[in-house]
Design a protein around this nucleic acid. Sequence first.
DNA 1: TCCGTTACGGTTGAC
DNA 2: GTGTCAACCGTAACG
Length: 344
Amino acid sequence: MKQTQLTDSPAFGEVNQLGGVFVNGRPLPNAIRLRIVELAQLGIRPCDISRQLRVSHGCVSKILARYNETGSILPGAIGGSKPRVTTPTVVKHIRTYKQRDPGIFAWEIRDRLLADGVCDKFNLPSVSSISRILRNKIGNLSQQSQYESGKQAPHPPPQPTLSYNHLYPYPTSKVPTPPGMPTLPGHMAMHRIWPSSHSVTDILGIRSITEQQISDSAAFSSAKLEEWSALNRTNFPAAISPLVSDVDKPHLEPEAKYTQMLNGLPTVNSYATAPSITPYHHPTQVSPYMGYSATTSAYVTGATWQPASGSAPSPRSCDIAAPLAFKSMTAGCDSIHQVTASVR
DNA sequence: TCCGTTACGGTTGAC
DNA sequence: GTGTCAACCGTAACG
């Protein structure tokens, strides 16, 4: 299989064709993700980023595409199930509808749920789900309601004020799409936080990176990423930090794990330092930890990105010191600049 | 050579 | 405690 073509399969990581270390099935560390976006914003071509960071170009392409689309460098939510749409509130309303009109069809209930604001188009149960609820959870309700209707006052109408989002909020509803930004479908908007707490510029401290030295931005990156890495699922209350959304919380954990394993191990600096990289050269020491340091303090340094030859790098060969080009990222840059222009 | 896309094996977490 | 499912991941390969 493709994966078996990898050059190495250490117990805790694998080495790709570029010599980079990765953990199959796990996201790249935020430090590398951040670096990918940073380099792209500096005008460095994805192929060069791929080679320098030893990340497959497909991955670079994916991360940059995600960043352009969502403004976030963080991976999506891994695992878990889709939130249930048949919440108790929805069931209650279905029951009410059935009580008031025992002959109501499932599709009519569905329309009512939508019309009354109980559900929106994203969490509207399917007709089959409603039928299942009628069958399993409400059962003989029609007969019961007919019986009860004779001795009870009419059931109060459904209260549309308690929407599904009240119990199972969708990030899309929590995070309005900013002006000028395209409206994303629900699955995409799940990760949309705007102004994105995960945008590079935000990560870099809400300052325009055009105003900073790379080393300065790296310091901010490091600080932010260390902040991330210090958090994990278990100690991450929803409101603990505005920097990270609920959706993205799970992805802090891997780095927290990696960080915990870092003591005494090489940092990512040795993994992704440009001068040390000979194209397609496999590191003599293969350690998955090399690539999974959550801290960029050692990983992202200005001097690190000098070309091995010592000659001045061109924009085509990683001109870090050159003015920002924002190559091919202009679509999202207007908003980015708006964000970076403001200082909290 | 570059890059978007896709198949693949793998991980994760809710149910 | 375990299995299933559906989301995600990055890589390698293709075009």
